[in-house]
Design a protein around this nucleic acid. Structure first.
Length: 201
DNA sequence: ACCCAGGGTCATA
DNA sequence: TATGACCATGGG
């Protein structure tokens, strides 16, 4: 599965926006917000910073936490332009990019890694709630372990390759979304049959 | 009418 | 350092 086939976006900036909007939120809600950003021609750092804050909040409303996320998007836009935008950021090494993103208010480890992997194509493994739930139910990791610790486990188990990391993450999300909706705890037994993911252990 | 969902920050002890 | 409150929507 190609990276872009499950995180569709026209450019790196759109992925950055999506990474913030999807915080603790289903992707279907994020799609609505992004669609509305496009309709209002607000899907650029310059346009967001120049827009009326109340309007921006209203436009991204479907993604939830819209007041918080409005501030976070503006902080990210600010940083993005200050550094010189996509052209400059694309030249940064992975560690510098990740550290820089983490400095932005509202960008935590998962949001930063979404951006590092999907927008700038550096090999970093994204740890999300699905990863924690599914693999802890399989008894393969401690759900409460710190982000960096879990990330290290996956990065040691999987070859450090952008497409591979994106592929595994996509598989995890697919299970998180599609299996056993009425019985969430059944995810583990469904997962056992999927060789690709079972091999992660 | 409930329950859940792909985070992160801040205040408190 | 660790735990809890808070942010808010949409779908099952």
């Amino acid at each position: 599965m190609a990276v872009d086939s499950w995180w569709p976006a026209d450019d790196a900036f759109e992925i950055m926006v999506g990474a913030v909007l999807t915080q603790n939120t289903s992707w279907t809600n994020v799609e609505k917000a992004i669609q509305q950003l496009k309709q209002h021609e607000l899907l650029s750092a310059e346009a967001m910073l120049a827009s009326d804050v109340a309007l921006l909040a209203e436009v991204i409303r479907p993604s939830g936490y819209y007041n918080v996320k409005t501030k976070r998007l503006l902080a990210l836009c600010d940083w993005y332009l200050q550094q010189g935008g996509e052209v400059v950021l694309a030249t940064w090494p992975m560690a510098k990019l990740r550290a820089g993103l983490l400095e932005v208010n509202g960008v935590g480890p998962e949001t930063a890694d979404d951006i590092v992997l999907y927008a700038f194509h550096h090999p970093v493994f994204v740890i999300d709630a699905y990863t924690r739930r599914i693999f802890s139910r399989l008894g393969l990791l401690n759900e409460k372990a710190p982000y960096a610790e879990l990330q290290s486990q996956f990065e040691q188990a999987i070859p450090a390759d952008v497409k591979t990391y994106a592929h595994y993450h996509a598989l995890i999300i697919e299970f998180g979304k599609e299996t056993c909706k009425t019985k969430p705890r059944c995810q583990a037994c469904c997962l056992r049959d999927r060789c690709e993911l079972a091999q992660v252990s």
